[in-house]
């Protein structure tokens, strides 16, 4: 557990840099987190991030498939937005926990 200063804000993060308090998230924080990964956020990115945050709030388990069926973007498109690891990167930028298994 630690803190870091990003976009002129102090945020709480875990060892892997995932935010631990979703209420500290805003669009500037998202853009700065994305920049660290090498992604420049477009409106489409933000649509995905909003969807993820909303579903997380509702307590749903998020999957790449679920985002692909959201009507915002298909799975190929999601990979283009967040190359390499679409769900882990989009979750990180959305300020929600990393998708995890039980161990």
């Amino acid at each position: 557990m630690g803190q870091k200063v990003i976009a002129n804000k102090t945020i709480d993060v875990n060892d892997e840099g995932y935010m631990t308090d979703p209420s500290q998230w805003d669009k500037d924080v998202a853009s700065a987190l994305a920049e660290e990964i090498g992604i420049e956020l477009s409106d489409k990115h933000f649509e995905v991030l909003d969807y993820l945050r909303e579903k997380f709030k509702e307590g749903e388990v998020l999957t790449i498939r679920k985002v692909g069926k959201s009507g915002i973007v298909d799975i190929k498109g999601l990979y283009q937005l967040f190359p390499g690891g679409p769900l882990k990167y989009s979750s990180k930028i959305a300020g929600i926990p990393k998708p995890a298994s039980c161990v």
Partner: peptide, 16 residues
């Protein structure tokens, strides 16, 4: 695996 690793929880990752 579609996940970021076989182990995804920090302590289990370290130990297993």
């Amino acid at each position: 695996t579609p996940m970021a690793g076989v182990f995804t929880k920090p302590i289990a990752t370290k130990m297993l």
